[in-house]
C-alpha cells in the first residue's frame, strides 16, 4: 500500500494590471463599469483585455466610458457543492508563507455554496462578463433575464469590488 503525502503549495503573489486592466479596476473602485472600445474593430469590451481577442488590436486605456449597471443573463450555473475542500485558516497560512504577507495578500478563495457563476452581457458591451450571483433565491435565474450590478461597501480595486449581479 502506497503512502500519500498530504501537503499544499501556498504562495503570495502580486499580479501587474497594466494600463487597461488598471483603469478598469480603478473604475470598479468608483462603482463604474467601464467599457473599452477596440480602436481597430470598434467592439466594446467589459471587462476588457490588453489585446482585442477578436481582431488582435491594442486597446487604448483612454478610450473607455462607463456602461450602465444592467445587462442580460447569457448563461449561468449554480454551484451547489464545495469543490475546493475546507478553507485553510489564517493561522495555518501564516505558517506556510511569510507572516507579514497574508495581511497584504488575502487568500484567493471561492464563496461558500450555493452560489451561481453568471455570464452577463452588459448593455452596450460585445462580450460577456463572467461573475457571481449569491445571497438570493438562485432559482430565479433564467437565461435571458435582466441582471443588475451590486457593489461592495469597501472597495480596493479588485474584480470583487463588484460584489455580485442580482436578478432584476
Amino acid at each position: 500500500m502506497s503512502r500519500v503525502l498530504d501537503w499544499d503549495i501556498t504562495v503570495p503573489f502580486r499580479w501587474t494590471c497594466g494600463p487597461v486592466y488598471g483603469r478598469f479596476l480603478g473604475g470598479l473602485k468608483e462603482k463604474q463599469l467601464l467599457g473599452f472600445e477596440c480602436p481597430r474593430c470598434q467592439e466594446v469590451y467589459c471587462p476588457p483585455q490588453d489585446i482585442c481577442p477578436r481582431c488582435g488590436g491594442d486597446f487604448d486605456p483612454e478610450q473607455c466610458r462607463p456602461l450602465g449597471e444592467e445587462g442580460d443573463l447569457v448563461s449561468f450555473t449554480v454551484v451547489e457543492a464545495n469543490l475546493f475542500g475546507p478553507r485553510p485558516d489564517d493561522e495555518y497560512l501564516r505558517r506556510r508563507i511569510h507572516p507579514a504577507d497574508l495581511g497584504e495578500h488575502p487568500l484567493l478563495w471561492p464563496p461558500d455554496p450555493p452560489y451561481a457563476i453568471v455570464m452577463v452581457r452588459l448593455d452596450g458591451a460585445a462580450n460577456n462578463f463572467l461573475h457571481l450571483a449569491r445571497g438570493e433565491d438562485l432559482s430565479r435565474l433564467q437565461v435571458g433575464c435582466r441582471m443588475r450590478a451590486v457593489w461592495k461597501e469597501e472597495r480596493e480595486g479588485f474584480l470583487l469590488d463588484l460584489d455580485r449581479f442580482t436578478v432584476l
Binding site: T10, W15, T16, C17, G26, H105, P106, L107, L108, W109
Partner: peptide, 14 residues
C-alpha cells in the same frame, strides 16, 4: 480616476 497597479492575493492549493 485611479489606475490600479496590481492585485495581491495568496494562492493555496492542497
Amino acid at each position: 480616476m485611479e489606475i490600479v497597479k496590481n492585485v495581491k492575493r495568496t494562492c493555496y492549493v492542497p
